[in-house]
Every structure is written in structure tokens, then in C-alpha cells.
């Protein structure tokens, strides 16, 4: 770990959704604030800033993490993915995003980016989950609008379609 001065701003550089980005941050700046207000990537949301609600979940070096519990300088040199990186191209949605839209698995959409990041990662490692597993996995996220039922349905539907796609590809 490099030694950082609390009073100074430091260069923070990482790969975000496949592109090199950089900005200046004080050591105390949260990764959420850096993403949102320095880089302008406002898709990552802040719901509690104490690691419970999961709205700020991003993928760091392949692992889902709470961006509100991390300092920006800790992400220096890492590979990050955020909700802005999920869709294959502008105007198109990923299979998981499509499933959320089809099942009305979001209402206000504020918790959704974090849930999408977690599920995107989860379904890669767990292509054929049981409903109970999805429910237990989702306990790391708080949603106040949907009652979770359509989120679970969307996740299972997306998993099925992802499996289908893989089968047709092989």
C-alpha cells in the first residue's frame, strides 16, 4: 500500500467497464462519491452508506462489493464494473435487464443497479440456481418497492435464458 497524505488529493486510476479512467481524490473520499461525482457515473446509487442496503454494489476485480464501504484510493489499479457496463450497447439490454423489465422487477429503480450487479455475477457462477438459493442470495439487498417476488422471478427467468443461449452457442 502506498503511503497517502490525508490533506492531499491523489491520482486514482482504474479500468471501469472496459475503459481506463482516472481522477483526483482525497484519501477519505468514498468510492461511491468518486464514481458518481468525480467520474459522473451516477448509475451506482447510495442508499445507506453503512453497507446494509446494497444499492451501491459494484464488481471489483470480479467480485461484488459495496462501493460505500470502500475508499476511492483503494480501487486504484483495479478492474471495476458498474451498472452502466451491463448492457451490450446503447439501446439494447442484457438478458438479465430484459428479464427485470418483463417481470416488473423494479419500480423506483433505486436499488436496482446494485441488485443487477450482484445477480449478474451470481448467475455466472450459478447458472441453474434453485428459487431458495436466489432468495438467500438476495438477502444482501434491500428493495422497498417490489416485495422481491418479481426480482426472484426475473433472476430465475434470466438464468433459464442464459442457459438456453449457452446451449445454442455450444
Amino acid at each position: 500500500m502506498p503511503r497517502l497524505s490525508a490533506d492531499a488529493r491523489h491520482r486514482v486510476a482504474f479500468v471501469l467497464n472496459g475503459r481506463a479512467v482516472e481522477g483526483q481524490a482525497e484519501p477519505r473520499m468514498l468510492l461511491t462519491d468518486f464514481l458518481r461525482h468525480v467520474l459522473g457515473m451516477t448509475g451506482t446509487h447510495v442508499g445507506c452508506e453503512h453497507g446494509v442496503c446494497g444499492a451501491c454494489t459494484v464488481e471489483i476485480d470480479g467480485v461484488p462489493a459495496r462501493a460505500c464501504l470502500m475508499l476511492a484510493v483503494q480501487a486504484d489499479g483495479a478492474i471495476l464494473r458498474t451498472v452502466e457496463g451491463l448492457a451490450p450497447e446503447p439501446g439494447r439490454l442484457s438478458l438479465l435487464q430484459q428479464a427485470f423489465r418483463r417481470h416488473h422487477a423494479l419500480q423506483c429503480g433505486f436499488c436496482t443497479p446494485g441488485i443487477l450487479m450482484s445477480l449478474d455475477n451470481y448467475l455466472r457462477d450459478n447458472p441453474d440456481p434453485r428459487e431458495d438459493d436466489v432468495r438467500i442470495f438476495l438477502t444482501g439487498h434491500l428493495c422497498r418497492c417490489t416485495g422481491y417476488v418479481p426480482i426472484v422471478a426475473a433472476a430465475l427467468d434470466a438464468a433459464a435464458r442464459l442457459r438456453e443461449m449457452k446451449e445454442t452457442q455450444t
Binding site: 446509487h45 451491463l86 427485470f100 423489465r101 423494479l106
Partner: peptide, 21 residues
């Protein structure tokens, strides 16, 4: 009819426009 929501494409891709955005 339960058509898909016009709101969702933006919200699912991180392009919502909430007060802090």
C-alpha cells in the same frame, strides 16, 4: 395490459435522473 414500462430502460442501465444525479 401489462405492457413493459417506458421508465425501465433508463433505470436498468444506470441512466435514471434522480435528484443527486
Amino acid at each position: 395490459r401489462s405492457i413493459e414500462r417506458v421508465e425501465d430502460a433508463a433505470l436498468l442501465t444506470g441512466r435514471g435522473r434522480y435528484i443527486d444525479d
